[in-house]
Design a protein around this nucleic acid. Sequence first.
DNA 1: TAGGCCATCTGGTCCT
DNA 2: AGGACCAGATGGCCTA
Length: 192
Amino acid sequence: MDCSDTDTNSCDFFPHTDDEDSRGSCAASPPPEQPQKKRRRGRARSEAAVQVVKKNRRVKANDRERNRMHNLNDALDALRGVLPAFPDETKLTKIETLRFAHNYIWALSETIRIADLQAGKAAEPPLLLASACLGEAPSPGSDACSWSSSGSSSSSSPPYCASSPGSPAAPDTFSFLQQDALFFRGFVPGIY
DNA sequence: TAGGCCATCTGGTCCT
DNA sequence: AGGACCAGATGGCCTA
């Protein structure tokens, strides 16, 4: 719409070269009708040139903005790659990715915190992420853990212990992390 | 078909 | 002046 009438070449497809300069130089050629009397650098030409410069700037800015958003999406993809994967699920949306990451980080930090607490005491069964999450809300002021219908199920054995690939180091924890991913994605309460 | 998600464009603002 | 960042607008695609 916006690019249909005036802007003909700044729409969807970009050859993606740095030829904005060439485009600019090309467009910077003097406007067609110029009384070739004397050297009257009148307003007409300068205004046309200004228009060309403005258009070039816009095209460049659009290109930068596109790149910026691509970088942002790349970072988001990298984040998706770090989060527990869902083999059969579709790609997380942007907002899901951010919320999931938020909850996931919280859960991991809780795991560490509780592990540290337990380190000083007798060794307990391996700490599971769900128990950490069931312990308290994922973030201050957030009711993200309200999904735990039975919030006090401290036994915290995973509802189903799939034979996940798991890591050789800590299979229990790892598989549970993956299952927790389902939880965390499921409730997605919103960060703020 | 409505609604959600996304990519892109665009103008404004802030910073270097 | 120019680039980065941001938010609003718009249109396309997909799914329930």
